[in-house]
Nucleic acid binder design. Structure first.
Length: 239
DNA sequence: TCAGATGATTCGAT
DNA sequence: ATCGAATCATCTGA
């Protein structure tokens, strides 16, 4: 078959990426979410599925390559959420691609997801309100940012993804209270995260399925749409 | 033209 | 039926 393929819009890619990195702990959009994404990106559900399939695989295969991207989208979403939450100070994006790359995280550990080690910090993701979901989302994102920016993840770089039971809160503490001046892009966010953790201390007796890294999280598929969606989508320039 | 990125297809496993 | 993985085919930038 003629595989006539066409790159998606930049906007579509943005939307997809934002969803992906906002749901890194469970990048498996439901049908509903897929439809929603499809609409926003002006692509079919099948294409959304393809995109996520490819993204998952390629992300896992080469996390180092996606670190910057992950940080970017994660930070963006985080800032967005934080701003919407209460803080309304500077909405100045880092816009510095050297955030994590120059900080010294030069190790290309493509063995496993380091950030995966901390996933069900607050098992009670379902507070019963959309606000809860939102918070969950940002916490998730921030967690990711932290683990990514913190180059000292070596300590737990082990294949935690295959041993989800070995998660300790102490690890989290270490993360959030990192003494080293980690070049985090979203310091205040980290602080907020810290608070989250402090406040939330639920027992994570979850028995995740070794799905290969991503276990199923009870995250209500909520499509974050920071960017405009319906109507403004425009097919990529004439090719 | 080449290499990397990316979307689509295929195949095996669950 | 869906996902992961491998692969193919095309696109894009150098």
């Amino acid at each position: 078959m003629l595989r006539k393929r066409r790159n998606f819009n930049k906007q579509a890619t943005e939307i997809l990426n934002e969803y992906f990195y906002s749901h890194l702990s469970n990048p498996y959009p439901s049908e509903e979410a897929k439809e929603e994404l499809g609409k926003k990106c002006a692509i079919t559900v099948a294409q959304v599925s393809n995109w996520f399939g490819n993204k998952r695989i390629r992300y896992k295969k080469n996390i180092g390559k996606f670190q910057e991207e992950a940080n970017m989208y994660a930070a963006r979403t985080a800032v967005n959420a934080t701003n919407a939450s209460s803080h309304g100070s500077q909405a100045n994006s880092p816009s510095t691609p050297n955030s994590a790359g120059s900080a010294g995280s030069f190790n290309m550990s493509n063995s496993g997801d380091l950030f995966m080690s901390v996933q069900s910090l607050n098992g009670d993701s379902y507070q019963g309100a959309q606000v809860g979901a939102n918070v969950q989302s940002q916490v998730d994102t921030l967690r990711h940012v932290i683990s990514q920016t913190g180059g000292y993840s070596e300590g737990l770089t082990a294949n935690q993804m295959y041993s989800p039971q070995g998660i300790n809160h102490s690890l989290l503490r270490s993360y959030t209270t990192s003494p080293s001046g980690l070049p985090c892009i979203v310091p205040h966010c980290v602080a907020a995260l810290s608070n989250e953790y402090e406040s939330n201390t639920p027992p994570p007796p979850f028995s995740s399925q070794a799905n290969g890294g991503w276990q199923d999280a009870p995250t209500p598929s909520s499509v974050t749409s920071p960017t405009e969606g319906p109507g403004s989508v425009h097919s990529d320039t004439s090719n």
